[in-house]
Each structure stands twice: as structure tokens, then as C-alpha cells.
Nucleic acid binder design. Structure first.
Lengths: 97, 97
DNA sequence: ATAGCAAGGTTTATAATATAAACCAAATTA
DNA sequence: TAATTTGGTTTATATTATAAACCTTGCTAT
């Protein structure tokens, strides 16, 4: 009846991060922070979790002399996101109201 | 960009409960338990939370001699659910993949 | 130079949450 | 009448989310 929801994605901030990355090829930490309104600490933690799960890959580079953390979604991340959305449907698509 | 997600609804079990109640007028505790696969304890707690928030109303009756807890969605609950679904769209509807 | 501040994060402490285990009361069965 | 089942509730624990505190490097004004 209800499909289980990947707990890694069923989190407001992590879902927002994944959502951003899906449409943007790659994104900087700072950009994600701005778009989501998250605090740096919270975002750092959630990015770590997505990265540990293999849903995103993180590259630490420099932009001029400033550190710049780049994030990209992985194929596994994309698949997980799509499955999550599919599972969500079982909760949202109400059979006749 | 991303709309905040009502934390009361952004929970797998509570969302399942609301989803059931939307399409069913009223439902018994036992039925919800079966449909969601939740443990009684967990379900009891989550139903309390939805009830305290005014999203559902709970009526404790008897079915023959056995206790029977009936749940119904309230107008506030329906509204909250619809707003939650609407907010979720901002995370799921990716602008061009 | 160097004291102070900012940028870009990370680590850690705390608060909130989800979850199951333990429990309870009434009815049924052995 | 003792044990078991049904239909839950309460409580203890484990997980999670979150922000506060912190760190490092570079820039700025003194």
C-alpha cells in the first residue's frame, strides 16, 4: 500500500539539496546554502550524509584563493531520488477524494 | 525557492495515516495499523500528535465489547495536507532535467 | 607586522523525533 | 482461575536534525 520512503531523502534539507543538484549539473556549497536558506553547519552535515551514501560527490577546490566545495549528483543519487518520488506518490495520490 | 514542509506531515507514518483518512471518511485504529504496517505503540503516538494538532479527530468507542478507536480527518487536517503536497512540489518538480 | 574581521566551512553539543519495548485493562479461552 | 488475546497507551532508547561554537586562511586597516 505505502512504499517505504528512503530516510536519507525524506529530510527537508537533504531533499532540497538533491532537488537543486538534479537540475544544475554541479553547485557550490555557498550557492546551495543561499538557495536553501540552511545554516552552514547544518548543510555541511547533510552534504556529508548524502556523500557518504554515494548520492552526491563532493569536490573541494579553490575559487581564486578561497575554498570552494562543489557538489554533483551521482547516478545512484539520481536513481534514489526518482525512486523516492515514485514512493511518495503512494502517499499523495489519493484514490478519489 | 523551497517552501517549508510542515514537520507534522513530513513523517512517513503520519503522512500514511493522513493519506488513508483522506480517502476513507473514518478509519479504525486497527485498520490503519494493518494498512501502514506500523506497530501499535508507534501508531498510537503518531495519532496523538495528529490529534493534538487538530489534523484528525479521535473517537474512542466500542465494537461489541472491544474498544475501537475511530479516526477522522478534520478540515484543518485536509487543508494542511493539501498545503503540504503543494509545498512538496517545489522539491519534486525539477525545472528541466 | 599584527590586530581584527570576514569567508567558507567543520565539529560538536543539544533538542527534537521516531520507534519499539514494556506495560495495562478487559474479555475470551483452556 | 490461570493463561492468552485484543486493543491499545506509556515510557525508554536510539536516531536525527539543527545551530552554536569553532577552525583556517586570507584580507584590511593601523
Amino acid at each position: 500500500m505505502f512504499k517505504p520512503l528512503d530516510p536519507l531523502l525524506h529530510s527537508e534539507l537533504r531533499l532540497a539539496v538533491m532537488s537543486l543538484l538534479i537540475s544544475t549539473e554541479e553547485a557550490e556549497f555557498i550557492y546551495i546554502k543561499e538557495q536553501t536558506g540552511a545554516t552552514a553547519g547544518n548543510l555541511s552535515v547533510q552534504i556529508d550524509k548524502l556523500s557518504s551514501a554515494g548520492y552526491i560527490e563532493v569536490e573541494k577546490t579553490f575559487k581564486g584563493k578561497k575554498p570552494c566545495t562543489l557538489c554533483r549528483i551521482t547516478p545512484a543519487g539520481l536513481k534514489a531520488f526518482e525512486e523516492y518520488v515514485e514512493s511518495l506518490r503512494s502517499y499523495l495520490e489519493v484514490p478519489r477524494k
